[in-house]
Nucleic acid binder design. Sequence first.
DNA 1: CCCTGCAACTGAACGATGCAAAGATTCGTC
DNA 2: GACGAATCTTTGCATCGTTCAGTTGCAGGG
Lengths: 208, 208
Amino acid sequence: MQDSAERRPSFGKKFKYHHGALKPALLAAAEEILVTQGLENLSLRALARATGVTQAAPYSHFADKDELLAAVAEAGFQRLALQMADEATGQPDARGRIEKLIAAYIRFAVANDQLFCLMFGRELAEMKNYPTLAMTAGKSYALISAVLARRAGVDAEETRFQTLAIWSLCHGLAQLIMDERVEVGQFGAHDIDGFVRRAVGLFAAQLG
Amino acid sequence: MQDSAERRPSFGKKFKYHHGALKPALLAAAEEILVTQGLENLSLRALARATGVTQAAPYSHFADKDELLAAVAEAGFQRLALQMADEATGQPDARGRIEKLIAAYIRFAVANDQLFCLMFGRELAEMKNYPTLAMTAGKSYALISAVLARRAGVDAEETRFQTLAIWSLCHGLAQLIMDERVEVGQFGAHDIDGFVRRAVGLFAAQLG
DNA sequence: CCCTGCAACTGAACGATGCAAAGATTCGTC
DNA sequence: GACGAATCTTTGCATCGTTCAGTTGCAGGG
């Protein structure tokens, strides 16, 4: 297979030395590799190969592999927050909203396990280096926090505690399911919503 | 610095071609590197360097890097279960035992964050390949599960639910603290025990 | 219209890593 | 003391992240 014919995706008109839209193409290819081959097989070189450019090309758009991963993760956080917000709309009371938010969170983790690994994994532990990432990552937490904070008659300190407790429960379950340390369905309800409803019920007294 | 003098730890009597106790030495060096330089800098080559052997020597004792990491993780799980059991002894009721178990778990995660990352990280996701690892890893869960199961008047299904809920809460909080997505002390009690006591209180009705 | 400057991309290279294969050395055992 | 097995060394390969000196194409000023 000759190089110029094989490695070039043959852009419509004529041979293009410049790719033109490499940055979004890289991000798209990254997500694709993530779901098809897993996070451990997502290398910059494989990414460049999939996009039809040289291995050094990504460095024109990302300073680092970490910066690229951070961008992918940020897109993930965006989608996560969106899905959570979507599911929670239309719920009349705080309890219903919390249930939907958590269920959406866990479903997202299960459905996009590799992406979730990247988002909450160790490779982006230095998230502080990417301020926009940190901001986007906080949205999901803010959704839960906001619901709890908007209640009357519950002081701020109690709200902080509940938010953290619910967030921990939610995040922990997602992790355990992903690591296959636990099987959804081992408890009676046989589904995520059942467990979530029951877990949120623990806070029922305060949720009204 | 000449090689034979520098790279060899100079075992008491005379120069030894065979290290003699490479396997435990590797495991010890691995934990050392883990705490001093982090999981991402724990390479087989660095390990061999630290132990004073050639880069291929570890392969006489471990088939794989994963097998080595699995052994380190297993030791970690052993210590974790031990610490949990230690703290829980002497507690009169189920609630006290659960509180101590969880607090010990979270303290372990905070104190040994890199090791915890390894134990619950993605690199050992294929834990099924290491049956003894899976068994040891289950001990901590079993500790909590046993306390809850030994109560009178609570059916098995409710016990399963509570175990999973508490386990999720516990694991999730540990993860969040480690990832620095949350600061212990943001809630009133200003310490782990305070939060744990309060969180376990959510199950108070059933814990008696 | 050409020229110049700049951003995007190439090609080649460096060092590090996990791992395999083959040879050297020591240990345990008959 | 000899021999086979276990341990360790040497050498080498493929891959990876990253850097760097060039090459290519575009846009704007003369």
